[in-house]
C-alpha cells in the first residue's frame, strides 16, 4: 500500500461532523429506526409469544428481545453502509474529501464509527424499553451497550468493505440474500437446539449468531467464557472490515 495518504485516521472526526450536519435536518429518519425492533418485539414476543409459552424457562418475549437488539444493531450498521455506497459511487463525497488532508483510513474509520454511534442510540433506547417491560434479568445487561457497539462495528466494517465491491444497485439483492437468512436463522426466534446437529454448526459460523449469544447471555444474566470468544470473533470482523475498506477506497479513488 502506497503511503501517499498517511494511514492515520485523525481526520475521522470530520466525517462524523459531516454526517451530524446532514442528519440534524433529517433526525426523524434516525428516530423512526428506533421503532422497528420494538414492533418486532410486540408482534412476535407478545402477540405470538402467547402461543409459544416459555423457551428455556423464560418468557418468549424475554428470549427474543436480546436477539432483536443484536439484529437491529446489524441492520442499522448495514443500512448506514448502503449510504456509503451512494456517497462513493454517485455523490462523489469522498472524492472531494480526499483532495484535502483527510485520507482513506479517516473515511473508513469515520463512516464505521458513525454507524456505531447511530446504532448505540437505538440500542440505548431499546434497552430502556425492554428493561421497563421487565425483560432484562441481570445487571450484566449494562455490558449490553458496549457489546452492541462491538456488534455495530463488526457489521459496519464489513458493510463498508462490501460497498466498495458493489457496482450497481442490483448488487443489493445479493446483500439481502445474506442479510435476511442471517436474521431469520441465527437463533433470533428459537434456540439452536431446534436444528439438526449438522446445521447447528453452520449457524455457529454466522456473525449474527455470536452477536445474539453475547447479548442474550448478558441480558439474561448468564455470560460465561464462550462470550469472550463471541466478542473476539466480532472484534476481528470489525478490524478486517476496516482494513479492507481502507485499502479498497485507497485503490479506487487514489490511483
Amino acid at each position: 500500500m502506497s503511503a501517499i495518504a498517511a494511514v492515520t485516521a485523525g481526520g475521522a472526526r470530520f466525517l462524523l461532523e459531516r454526517n451530524l450536519m446532514v442528519y440534524r435536518r433529517i433526525w426523524l429518519v434516525i428516530f423512526s429506526g428506533f421503532f422497528e425492533p420494538l414492533f418486532y418485539l410486540f408482534s412476535m414476543g407478545f402477540g405470538l409469544g402467547h402461543f409459544v409459552g416459555h423457551v428455556n424457562g423464560i418468557s418468549y418475549a424475554s428470549f427474543i428481545a436480546p436477539a432483536l437488539l443484536a439484529s437491529s444493531a446489524m441492520n442499522g450498521a448495514i443500512y448506514d453502509a448502503t449510504n456509503v455506497f451512494w456517497k462513493l459511487r454517485y455523490a462523489k463525497v469522498y472524492d472531494a474529501i480526499l483532495s484535502t488532508p483527510v485520507g482513506p483510513a479517516d473515511v473508513a474509520v469515520g463512516e464505521s464509527v458513525w454507524a456505531v454511534f447511530r446504532g448505540l442510540i437505538y440500542s440505548f433506547g431499546f434497552l430502556i424499553v425492554i428493561a421497563a417491560l421487565g425483560l432484562v434479568h441481570s445487571w450484566w445487561a449494562l455490558l449490553a451497550l458496549p457489546a452492541a457497539a462491538l456488534i455495530g462495528s463488526a457489521f459496519a466494517g464489513l458493510g463498508v468493505a462490501a460497498m466498495t465491491y458493489f457496482r450497481s444497485w442490483q448488487d443489493f439483492e445479493l446483500l439481502a440474500l445474506v442479510q435476511l437468512p442471517m436474521f431469520l436463522f441465527s437463533t433470533t426466534f428459537y434456540p439452536i437446539t431446534v436444528y439438526p446437529h449438522a446445521i447447528q454448526w453452520i449457524v455457529r459460523v454466522t456473525p449474527l449468531y455470536h452477536a445474539i449469544q453475547l447479548l442474550r447471555t448478558l441480558i439474561l444474566g448468564s455470560p460465561g467464557l464462550p462470550q469472550l470468544g463471541d466478542a473476539a470473533y466480532l472484534a476481528v470482523l470489525a478490524a478486517v472490515g476496516i482494513v479492507i475498506a481502507t485499502r479498497r477506497i485507497h485503490r479506487q479513488l487514489l490511483s
Binding site: 405470538l48 402461543f51 409459544v52 409459552g53 435476511l180 431469520l184 436463522f185 426466534f189 428459537y190 431446534v194
Partner: peptide, 21 residues
C-alpha cells in the same frame, strides 16, 4: 427462508401449545 425459519423452525415452539393459532 421465511417458511423454513418462521413456519418450520418457530413452528416447533408453537405446535406443542394447547391453543395453536
Amino acid at each position: 427462508f421465511y417458511l423454513a425459519a418462521l413456519g418450520i423452525g418457530l413452528g416447533t415452539l408453537v405446535n406443542h401449545s394447547a391453543s395453536r393459532p
